[in-house]
Structures are given as structure tokens and as C-alpha cells.
Simulated assay, not measured.
Amino acid sequence: MKKILITGANGQVGSELKDVFKDRVDLDTFFLDRNQLPLDQTAIIQDIFGMYQPDVIIHCAAYTAVDKAETEQDMADKVNHLASEEIAIYCRLNNVKLIAISTDYVFDGESSQPMLEDAPVAPINTYGITKLKGEQAIKKWQPESIIIRTSWVYSVYGNNFVKTMVRLMNEREEISVIDDQIGSPTYALDLAKAVAHILDGEQWIPGIYHFSNEGEISWYDFAAEIKNIKGIDCKINPIPTASYPTPAKRPKFSLLDKKKIKETFGVVVPEWKKSLRYMLNKI
């Protein structure tokens, strides 16, 4: 029986993977949270994996507090970079397959075309820098890995834009949402299903892949559709990024090109509105 270890058990993707794998009798799955696998304690990571001896590691855990990372740079680097390096070294030494989740924040956001996997990387905040270093460490130590970059992740689990918008729209008569950052959201369940599909496939083709839902929208468009689906009476004002300064800069354009993952693995990528409606019906 194939043994699969998932990091970030309580994160959005990890939680959705629990649901995807829960009825699988052909798999032995281990979900580790930050207490069982403290990624900031890099010296013990390989020993912890040694207790489980997995065949595959799905590395979902990350330091994702984008603004906080600007003041907690060492912690972000430990979790996103140095821990990923330890995981990759373990995988190489023990012939373990690795799927790691990365981010659109490795790009600078200056493109006007959906970004291919080999587009130039130039992160503009600490989170993006540490995630890119993590990618580079994984490629160096375990070049047979699969890295999946994703963007604007939301889920029924954890804290995310969708749940925040529903709460704010119910609390207030009007809200303001940025309309000049462009990308596509990712329903974590769709990403979890894509990961499971790759694992179940006949072929393992290492490399970097992009996955988000289909479509090209702004955060304002995203909020407007949440309002529409939920039927909430709240006015949404579109505002520019300049009107909402944050400690960390955000990419203006982070639309990912998904051709490679679709053509290589036959992954089906749902349209963003369909996935959003499905998720909102669950909460």
C-alpha cells in the first residue's frame, strides 16, 4: 500500500486533501500539522519523516502571512525555504516522490500575458522571495519533484478572501475592494483533486506546473460574484491598490497559464464561477 505524507494538515489545501483521500482504502495517508511537524525546527524534519517512511510527500505547508512576513523574515525563510530544502534532501536520500505547492508570488506582476512556467521570476515581497528559494532548493536537491504554483487560494477551511467577503458584506452596508490586481482564484478542492489525479496517473513527469481556476478577474470582480451568488445587499466600491497600502507589495498581474498541467497530466481545470458557487453552497 502506497504511503503518502501530507504537510500542512490544517491548511486549506491540506484540509481539502483530507476530504479527497478519506475514502481511499488503497492509500495509507498521514497528515501532519505544525505541532507534529514544526517546520521552523529544520534540524528535526528528516527524523520526523523517518518515523513514517512515506513513498510520496505532498508538501502543502507554508508561511503564508504575506504582510507579517515583512517583519518576520527569518521565520518565513525557515518555513518556506530551509524546511523545503530539508524535505527535498530527505526525498532524494530516501527515493521519495515529492509534490510541492508554490505560488504566483514568485513573479513581479508586470506581465500582461498569462505566465508560463519558465517566465522570468522576480518576487516583490518577502513571502515570494522565500517561496522562490524553496522552489530552487527543491529543484537542486530533488530534481524529480513536481512543483505546482497556484494563486488566490480559497476553501471552506481556514481564513480566506471568500469567507472574509461574506462576513464583511453581511456586517456592512458598503465595502471597498481592489480592482487593479488581476489573476484567477483557486478553489483548494480543485487543486487537491488535481494533485490526487497526478498521483494516480501512470506517469511521473517532474517539473514546475501552474494551476488555478479558469478565468481572468480582479479582486473586485471576485467580490462582486460572491455578492451575486449569496444575494447580499451590500455596495462594493472598486478602488486602486494605491488606496489600500499594505506592508507587502502585491503583484498587479498574476494570471497563470495552465496549458502544461492540462496537456501533461490531463488535469481538468474548472471555471472559477462554477467552483465559487460550489464552495459557497457548502458553507
Rank of each mutant, 00 (worst) to 15 (best):
L276M: 13
K235Q: 07
D180Q: 05
D74W: 12
K258I: 15
I124F: 03
F211V: 12
K193Q: 12
Q113S: 13
I4E: 07
I146R: 04
N160Q: 12
W141R: 14
Y90H: 04
A100P: 01
T29I: 15
G158C: 04
P114T: 08
F222A: 03
N213D: 13
W272F: 10
V166K: 02
I138A: 03
A192G: 01
L276Q: 12
K3A: 15
H197P: 04
I175S: 01
P114Q: 11
G215M: 06
P270T: 11
C60K: 10
I182S: 01
D74P: 05
L168W: 11
I101T: 13
L93P: 01
V56Y: 05
I89P: 00
S218G: 04
W152A: 11
T7V: 06
G158E: 06
C91W: 04
V96R: 05
R34E: 07
A83I: 05
S184I: 00
Q142H: 15
E216G: 01
P123W: 00
P38C: 02
I44S: 15
T164R: 15
N213K: 01
L199V: 03
G128R: 01
E225M: 13
E263Y: 06
V195T: 10
D108N: 11
G266W: 09
S102R: 06
V162C: 12
K282W: 02
V162P: 08
P206I: 07
Y220Q: 06
P270A: 08
T42H: 02
F31R: 09
W272G: 01
I99N: 08
S275Q: 09
Y157E: 01
R92T: 15
A188W: 13
A62L: 07
H81I: 03
K227S: 00
I229V: 14
D200H: 08
W152N: 08
G8V: 06
Y220H: 14
M115F: 10
A76H: 04
A43Q: 14
E171R: 14
F21H: 03
F253I: 01
S184C: 03
L82T: 07
C234V: 12
L189M: 13
V195E: 04
I236T: 02
A83T: 07
N170F: 05
N228P: 03
W141M: 14
G134S: 06
H210W: 14
W219D: 08
K273M: 09
D19L: 11
E144A: 15
A137R: 12
I182H: 03
A76R: 03
Q12S: 15
L255F: 01
S102C: 09
G134V: 08
K249Q: 07
T241M: 09
Y63G: 00
I44Q: 15
I208Q: 07
S243V: 00
Q53R: 15
H81C: 14
E214K: 13
P206R: 04
D47P: 10
K273N: 05
M115Q: 05
N160I: 06
G109Q: 07
T186N: 10
W141D: 15
D233K: 14
N95T: 10
Q41T: 02
D104S: 10
V156G: 02
L5F: 08
L17I: 07
K260Y: 06
F107Q: 08
K249Y: 01
V66I: 14
K131N: 00
P251W: 09
D47L: 13
I198K: 03
S254N: 08
P185T: 01
I138C: 05
F222V: 05
S155R: 09
R24K: 13
S243W: 09
S112Q: 10
M51Q: 15
I45M: 12
A76M: 03
Q46H: 12
